[in-house]
Amino acid sequence: MSGQDQAAGLRKWADLQRQQRGDEAPPEATEPPRPMAYREPIVPSAAAMTPPVTPPTPKTPLMVIGLPDSGPVQVRKVSARLGQWAALGRAWAKDPADWDIRVVMPDDPELASLSQAHSRWALWVSSDADAFGRMYHVLKQLHQHNGPQRLLALHEPHLPRQGLLENLRQAANRYFGIELLLLAR
């Protein structure tokens, strides 16, 4: 029974009660009942019931230099390292899935235009015995090809700041004017 049907029934009952007591009926009780219009129940469409889909946020490009090749294994290595930094509470590292990791070779002919187009660069520093010589050569190539002037040093977690990392930072600055950012643990 609809709400209007109940109201009409209550009005009739109230009118009967008044008549039995001898009261005068209200004016609306003397009017003929109006026909009730049928209304379709309002049912939200399926589109209205599904939550709005927000477009995915674009990934932040991170250009990485110093890896031996540009394969998916190298990208996963960088992503894992960013994940370790994020797990340590480093907000800048974000979720590794938020990064568009691109491996760039230091002799890439497009290096100068890439360095102008992208602001986030990293240097992957290995920890083997020949790492300093290789990284020095990479930094030299960056300088010769007008590469980026500021890079984040990405490296394995066990590599101490003193020694290889600090020596690379000093050489990059002194010989090539490149700022190599070393992060504290």
Score class of each variant (00 low, 15 high):
P26I: 05
P26V: 11
P26Y: 03
P26H: 05
P27C: 04
E28P: 02
A29Y: 06
T30H: 11
E31N: 10
P32D: 14
P33V: 09
R34H: 11
R34D: 14
M36S: 14
M36F: 10
M36P: 07
M36D: 14
Y38D: 15
R39F: 10
R39V: 13
R39Y: 13
E40D: 12
P41W: 08
P41G: 09
P41V: 14
I42N: 08
I42K: 10
P44G: 03
S45N: 04
S45G: 15
A46R: 07
A46H: 06
A46S: 10
A47K: 03
A48M: 13
A48I: 02
A48V: 07
A48K: 05
T50C: 02
T50N: 05
T50R: 11
P51F: 03
P52N: 01
V53S: 03
V53T: 09
T54Y: 01
P55D: 07
P56K: 01
P56L: 00
T57Q: 04
P58F: 00
P58D: 10
P58A: 14
P58I: 01
T60V: 12
P61I: 06
P61V: 04
P61T: 10
L62K: 01
L62P: 06
L62V: 11
L62M: 04
M63Y: 10
V64K: 02
I65T: 07
I65E: 02
I65H: 00
L67H: 09
L67T: 12
L67P: 13
L67W: 07
P68I: 06
P68E: 13
P68K: 04
P68C: 05
P68L: 04
D69A: 15
D69Y: 12
G71N: 13
G71Q: 07
P72D: 15
P72W: 04
V73W: 08
Q74I: 05
K77T: 15
K77P: 06
V78L: 03
S79T: 11
S79E: 11
S79V: 05
A80N: 15
A80E: 15
R81E: 14
R81Q: 15
L82I: 10
L82A: 05
L82V: 11
L82N: 03
G83D: 05
Q84M: 14
Q84F: 10
Q84S: 09
Q84R: 14
